[in-house]
């Protein structure tokens, strides 16, 4: 049976993993290669490394980091943050990533999705969408808006419509972050996730709001998510992907165990 994936996310700044609350008060949380290997060893089904530096000098540091991280990692490895062109993506692939996550660059030039897919396959292109419900809309969920710049600027598109376009242009997966839920630890936005998951035929990865095991069970069930991103949950009560998955299995969610 196809299992629900638990994806461990590492935010990386200047070659180090950082933790913070909504990108402020960053605290050093170790070496990316070491942390990625630890998460894989502890049962994560996939690793996402998000570069939050986004400076020119930072790109070379990132490629070195990707190279070192990929070396001993034998689960799928996705890299995102600051990928603006097919050339940027190619460098990240050559450094050892299996997938790239693109966000604002895909909104600025949607052909980037098919450009990367043509060379590396659709499975290698994850389109990340930052979304926020639109309380003024007739249907706040279905009309949820796409945001860029860390959720500060709306781009004037609804999330369902953009997810569909991304799929048509050849995205392999959608990484959906709820800006409303992000950082709250109050649960994923299951209605929003379900709206996107039902609108597309490609897998949807839910992100934002994880706080408890029940939140994951909820987003896999009600939210119809195919995978869920976990970051800070490993610092708050649930120690590893393995323990998270053991509890999910107990709740009837199909997960990869033993792992």
């Amino acid at each position: 049976m196809l299992t629900k994936r638990i994806i461990a996310c590492l935010d990386v700044h200047a070659g180090r993993v950082v933790k913070g609350v909504q990108f402020v008060d960053l605290v050093d949380a170790g070496d990316p290669a070491t942390q990625a290997a630890r998460h894989a060893h502890e049962g994560a089904d996939e690793i996402v490394l998000l570069d939050i530096t986004a400076t020119h000098e930072g790109r070379q540091t990132l490629l070195d980091t990707v190279r070192r991280t990929a070396r001993e990692l034998f689960v799928p490895f996705c890299v995102g943050g600051g990928i603006r062109s097919a050339r940027d993506a190619e460098q990240v692939f050559e450094a050892g990533a299996d997938k790239v996550s693109i966000n604002s660059a895909a909104l600025a030039d949607p052909t980037l999705i098919s450009q990367i897919g043509a060379s590396f396959g659709a499975q290698a292109v994850v389109v990340a969408i930052d979304a926020r419900r639109d309380p003024a809309a007739a249907d706040p969920v279905r009309d949820a808006q796409v945001f860029v710049q860390g959720g500060r600027r709306p781009v004037g598109r609804t999330v369902v419509e953009w997810a569909r376009e991304a799929e048509q242009r050849g995205a392999g997966e959608i990484l959906l972050t709820s800006m409303d839920s992000d950082g709250t630890r109050a649960g994923f936005d299951c209605e929003l996730t379900a709206a996107v998951s039902e609108a597309v035929g490609i897998p949807v990865i839910a992100s934002g709001g994880a706080g408890t095991v029940a939140h994951f069970a909820d987003v896999f069930g009600r939210g119809k998510a195919d995978a869920a991103l976990a970051a800070s949950i490993f610092h708050f009560g649930v120690s590893t992907s393995r323990s998270l998955k053991e509890e999910l299995a107990h709740a009837g969610v199909p997960v990869r165990l033993p792992c």
């Binding site: 049976m1 196809l2 299992t3 629900k4 994936r5 089904d45 689960v75 799928p76 659709a122 499975q123 392999g172 997966e173 035929g201 490609i202 897998p203 195919d226 995978a227 990869r256 792992c259």
Partner: peptide
């Protein structure tokens, strides 16, 4: 169900496979 099939799924290994020797029923691959 969604297509593509993406993620970890289990193997039912048939006896006699040299490639999959030592892989137990139900082991997951990506």
């Amino acid at each position: 169900e969604k297509v593509p099939h993406v993620g970890w799924n289990s193997l039912e290994v048939r006896s006699g496979s040299q490639l999959l020797e030592g892989v137990e029923a139900g082991e997951f691959v990506y």
